[in-house]
Nucleic acid binder design. Structure first.
Lengths: 187, 187
DNA sequence: TTTGTTTTTTGATAAATGTCAAAAGTTTAG
DNA sequence: CTAAACTTTTGACATTTATCAAAAAACAAA
């Protein structure tokens, strides 16, 4: 819980009353490896804070699983598309390791926004951060060769390589596993 | 101004007082084709609402211009990375057509947030929408062939093809202009 | 351990896309 | 209306990357 608090304060420092109200709304969950947090086709009403562990978001395309993001310690995770729109998720979120998470209901968050302006500010700022993080990833990917993508990964997010099977990493980079393997052998 | 108001209310309907306060903070600008709204290396402190016209965001890579987004009527545009972080922009925003815009200073927005909770909510909701729009684009791009990317563009954002030179479109899709031209001739 | 399972690498080949250069077409400004 | 500038297409060829199949390596469970 202290970890969640630190993360929150890192985005925007809340007043004590808002902080208490917010923390009261999170529920601790422990789930084991390979389980699903979000399943394609079902609406996801929850936002999760990942205290410990690692997971991935993937969708199915032509019978293949396309992993498009990873979550690690201190990340807020969910199927954002489903959480925001209330539509069924098109992606799955699956644990790559056993995880400790804190969850909060969307409806509860909405109530908190009404009661505490600063909680809504916190979330506004968090969205800003998440937006530019996604934008950076996009720009990084466009017009890069497979080798450059891999080198970027090594320099910018080396922890991914240490904790994620190469098949998922290849998918994340948008290249085939074989190509990734060959690039690695050539470096 | 009515158009800006409609757009805003489309995200979240404001109270009359918030609405008035907000509209008072926008300044009308008319700029001609090829001019720059944002220049790489300079911090961008303004957010713009695009009432009429079309523009693009691009960055330089190995001497080439990589166009990574377009803005059209009713879009809020800026270099989000620079606007949010206060760091110098890495991208340029250039008008593809002469435009009518409304601008607001970041500092002014921050003041408005403090005075009107509902303006901050509006922006929080806008960020949500922009976030999932970007995410969709990302997912759409990953693991698609050049032909599929072009077909997606035709079905999802046909207005881009009608108003943007093919060289920019190719760059936007992450393929070479020649490849795009060949795909078009084969359909 | 030993065996079975999963992950990663390697090889051969095919397909997609990029690059360079030039031609054709279109738009713009005087 | 014409010349210059810019955009789009086409051709030839090189390169990158995907695909399929199988071997090797790493990992996990009995």
């Amino acid at each position: 819980m202290q970890q969640l608090l630190n993360s929150i304060n890192n985005y925007y420092p809340l007043s004590k009353s808002a902080e208490n109200a917010l923390l009261n709304c999170f529920t601790k969950i422990i789930i084991t490896k390979n389980e699903y947090l979000v399943t394609e086709g079902k609406v996801c009403h929850k936002l999760y804070f990942l205290e410990k562990g690692a997971l991935r978001g993937f969708y199915n395309l032509d019978g293949k699983e396309i992993t498009h993001w990873f979550g690690f310690e201190n990340d807020f995770v969910t199927s954002f598309h489903s959480f925001i729109t209330g539509e069924p998720a098109v992606e799955n979120v699956q644990l790559m390791e056993s995880c400790t998470l804190w969850s909060i209901e969307k409806e509860t968050m909405t109530d908190l926004f009404n009661q505490h302006h600063d909680i809504e500010r916190l979330v506004r700022i968090a969205y800003e951060k998440y937006y530019i993080r996604l934008e950076e990833r996009y720009v990084n990917a466009q017009f890069k060769t497979a080798k450059e993508l891999y080198e970027n990964l090594i320099s910018q997010t080396p922890h991914i390589l240490e904790r994620v099977p190469l098949g998922f990493v290849a998918s994340y980079l948008g290249i085939s596993q074989e190509t990734l393997s060959r690039i690695r052998s050539r470096l």
